[in-house]
Nucleic acid binder design. Sequence first.
DNA 1: ATCAATTCTGGTAGCGCTGCCAAAATTTTC
DNA 2: GAAAATTTTGGCAGCGCTACCAGAATTGAT
Lengths: 327, 327
Amino acid sequence: MASVTLAEVAEAAGLGESTVSRVLRNEGSFSRKARVRVMEAVERLGYVPNRIAGTLASAGSRLVAFVIPSLSNIVFPDLLRGASGVLEANQHQAVFAVTDYDPGREEALVAAMLAWRPTAVILAGFEHNEGTRKMLRASGRRVVEVLDLDGEPVDIAVGFSNRTAGRESAAFLLRRGYRRVGYVGHDLERDTRAGKRYASFCAALEMAGFPLVDRQINAGPSSVESGRQGLEQLLARSPGLDAVYFSNDDMAIGGYFHCLARGISIPSQLAIFGYNGLDIGRVTPQPLSTIRTPRVVTGQVAAELVVSNAPSQVVDLGFELIEGATA
Amino acid sequence: MASVTLAEVAEAAGLGESTVSRVLRNEGSFSRKARVRVMEAVERLGYVPNRIAGTLASAGSRLVAFVIPSLSNIVFPDLLRGASGVLEANQHQAVFAVTDYDPGREEALVAAMLAWRPTAVILAGFEHNEGTRKMLRASGRRVVEVLDLDGEPVDIAVGFSNRTAGRESAAFLLRRGYRRVGYVGHDLERDTRAGKRYASFCAALEMAGFPLVDRQINAGPSSVESGRQGLEQLLARSPGLDAVYFSNDDMAIGGYFHCLARGISIPSQLAIFGYNGLDIGRVTPQPLSTIRTPRVVTGQVAAELVVSNAPSQVVDLGFELIEGATA
DNA sequence: ATCAATTCTGGTAGCGCTGCCAAAATTTTC
DNA sequence: GAAAATTTTGGCAGCGCTACCAGAATTGAT
């Protein structure tokens, strides 16, 4: 339990603590001989440096905190995946907490994270409590808001515009000639990015003179199952639709399965359009029409900006519209 | 950024540091008046406790470290999801790092994690470098090895037996009358749990007198796409198969899509069996035959054992065979 | 009012490390 | 070989907090 300390290593190596510290951090100057003696002692004693103490002494925690809404939505594991590679390569660690789309929890979790004096706090989108925002600003930490661009960043923002994505999705469907369009989605109050896509999608349809015909919004998180049920419910009510926009690809794949099961032919009877560009959508018998978002890259870029202590900025990574074969 | 310290709060509240500390931790005794004065000062100054310092002083980091092979395989986000709820409810934080199925990286990352003196280290399976195991044992930290049961745990193990899963999958296919069975999988060297399932699956087939006919193992991680391609390659070589076992559900769904696209009727022409029990498999036009593993619960149980400082033990959470309609 | 029991409070020594500085050792220069 | 320049080294304060303990304040009993 009482783990080996740097002082013990110094003792064993017959050197001063500062010399050992310098060798271990490979910083400042020391002789070749000192390095060998230190390494030998470290090996022999099984010394593992204590970063807690190191951080306290030097005020730089090399911890990057992620406060994310969910882990069920693939978006967030992808984000973490992109970031963790970059962080590990730069001797940083990722800490995370899950808010479950609850701004109150988010506030509490941000406070808990700040207690670790992280290099940066990375969180999803711009919709935070005023308390959260205030804490972040007062913390002196770097703040990166990711996966959205439609809002006023605290410090850095990395992502893509959900409003633009919604608008372009509508434009695409209209270009393809669809006129009786419906929507199947999950909880929009909580997932504000999905909400933004929905709002601008509807606005674009309306502007073109073909407003949204009907929508089915199911409570709870997005899922394949919810998409399948949602489409079934929507079609029961509005059988005349010629296209359906889904809140994301999980939901869209669910809708796709519903059509397969019911023999609804895609896209001639019904067109399907998603959001995210999941791998699975490329391998379905008909590739899914969707928008591919750079989720992993968002994580990478956010991590790079943070480890390099870049200035405040907004990075638009854009997205790619995948025509696919379902719309 | 010189953040507010406890000493400043004490000054502002006109109290001693120890009193403030006690109030903030809600421990030991202090008057109602002291609490009010402290809270007022905290609020006014925007004080955020420094856990780094607190941990150093009290030797209990309330950090739980996850060292996992991947974030692309849904298994691991599910594990983290289960754990993070329990940890947050108990004022712990999750830290994680991704090894990419590389034991050398695992060793380095475990060392980096131990530098934070976490309450526990949670890692996947039993296959670690000798150095990793030695470090873990010497660390005095709790160690939880998850998602496997076939091995010698360092401390605690929580999960299910991959060998049993492989064996039961084979038994199921045999019971259903399949005799010419193939396998489509991803990199087995690296994903040792998939390797164990494969080995015991084959052994069970052999014992029954119907050894595996052919297999297609593609490099790289598991994915829907890899499953689809793998099945195509396998069938090109061995057209007479009547059932295929996939290394997991992602792969199996890929195979399912291949059959849909090629008009191979399931299960009469070809049966498909997966592993994991992903949600998506329940919603495909024909529900996927698979084994459902308690991934989220594994995370919850691991976290609970850790925060309650439970004794060393092995927890078998079992799994459920889902008959589905594809085999 | 007095004394004991109880509650509350503050001073201070670390926790293990890094940063600073001065001292010691080594190398270079003349 | 002495002086100057350079490299290497070690001592110690202090990062912000908690644990420990002694002392002050309050309460209760007599």
